[in-house]
């Protein structure tokens, strides 16, 4: 996993609540065996007016002042619904490096953190303030600093955030979860041996096979 320390760049406001992963990356984009190239599909039902990818200028990501946004600020329950990790890959491929919301769909949040994309929760008042500023002010530069656990809004206000310490460290160091777990291989082996005796029926194949 790529390490994440800090990003400064354009913030884009997407204040709707309950944006589900079907909206983030509609199903036709999932027909692939690769993780690459999904940025084009990000919010495609909202970004484009037709199948020829004509941009819908009413959609915030198409506004010139939010072009090349790096930080997405969203309404509560962002990424609810389907577990498709393509939703995370699409953000990264598009160029989004951090997402801020009051809350996230649990699977989306896990997926994001495992891909080096910090999904940061701030309280509702802070998110509303940032959303309002992004919509109103000409300034839209923001910073997400994971080392200091701090978001800086467009007007320079700093907001502290919390994240599981273990997840924060993993992001900062770009730790590969699988290697970390494989360090526990002896414990896993011991559990398996004991469980074969304790719960043998969990280890037999279903009879129809």
């Amino acid at each position: 996993m790529k390490a994440f320390r800090k990003v400064t760049g354009t913030g884009v406001p997407l204040g709707r609540s309950d944006i589900d992963t079907d909206a983030i990356i509609p199903q036709q984009w999932l027909i692939t065996t690769s993780r690459e190239g999904l940025g084009k599909g990000l919010f495609s039902n909202w970004r484009y007016r037709d199948d020829a990818f004509t941009p819908d200028h009413g959609f915030v990501l198409n506004e010139p002042r939010f072009a090349r946004a790096k930080i997405l600020v969203a309404g509560p329950n962002y990424g609810c619904g389907s577990s498709r990790e393509h939703a995370v890959w699409a953000h990264l491929d598009f160029g989004i490096e951090a997402i801020i919301a009051e809350s996230f769909g649990p699977i989306f949040r896990d997926n994001a953190l495992r891909n080096g994309l910090p999904a940061i929760t701030l309280d509702g008042a802070a998110v509303s303030q940032v959303l309002a500023q992004l919509a109103a002010l000409p300034a839209n530069r923001m910073t997400v600093d994971l080392e200091r656990a701090e978001v800086t809004g467009p007007d320079g206000t700093a907001y502290r955030f919390t994240m599981d310490e273990e997840r924060r460290r993993a992001l900062l160091d770009g730790i590969d979860d699988i290697s970390a777990t494989l360090a526990h291989a002896p414990d896993i082996d011991a559990f398996h041996s004991a469980d074969r005796i304790r719960n043998p029926y969990y280890w037999v194949q279903p009879p129809r096979d």
Binding site: G81, S82, S83, R84, E85, V88, I107, F108, D110, N111, R114, N115, D177, I178, T181, L182, H184, I188, H192
Partner: peptide, 30 residues
């Protein structure tokens, strides 16, 4: 798949995961 919660009806702990977690389970069974 997020609808893995269906199987909790059998009295098991069933839950949906993302693709990175799928890889993690394949590699470690944990």
């Amino acid at each position: 798949d997020s609808h893995t919660c269906t199987l909790g009806a059998l009295g098991c702990w069933a839950f949906g995961i993302g693709t990175s977690e799928v890889e993690h389970v394949l590699a470690t069974q944990t």
